[in-house]
């Protein structure tokens, strides 16, 4: 078991009571994320597919490396590692997602 930090992006912070970082234990990235999901209702569905893989608009990083280029969810973690959840961000201050092309 390693102790790691998970960085929560702003849009997901309502699920963590506003916390931008959560400390967790686990042996792999997948295990850490499952524990994150178990502790914070509704969060995991926004990050992972039903099969437990990162969704198409989310990347999971271990340190500065995308886990897709490592061993995915099976990538092993070490004490002090930082896992970052990085969803696609559109930009600035539009009013309606579908109909407006207002600029940031």
């Amino acid at each position: 078991m390693s102790r790691v930090t998970v960085r929560i992006p702003t849009p997901l912070r309502p699920h963590t009571g506003g916390a931008d970082e959560v400390g967790l234990e686990g042996t792999t990235v997948g295990e850490v994320l499952q524990r994150l999901g178990a502790a914070h209702d509704g969060l995991l569905a926004r990050v992972l597919t039903a099969e437990g893989e990162p969704r198409q608009f989310v990347n999971i990083y271990l340190g500065s490396r995308n886990v897709r280029g490592l061993e995915g969810m099976a990538t092993r973690v070490s004490d002090g590692d930082v896992i970052s959840i990085v969803p696609a961000v559109a930009g600035g201050a539009h009013k309606s997602q579908r109909t407006s092309a207002r600029r940031a």
Partner: peptide, 18 residues
């Protein structure tokens, strides 16, 4: 990002603020 998030997961910044 091969695909964008669905609209309900891409919160409007007019609500979110910046």
């Amino acid at each position: 990002y091969p695909e964008p998030p669905p609209a309900e997961l891409a919160p409007s910044c007019a609500e979110a603020g910046v």
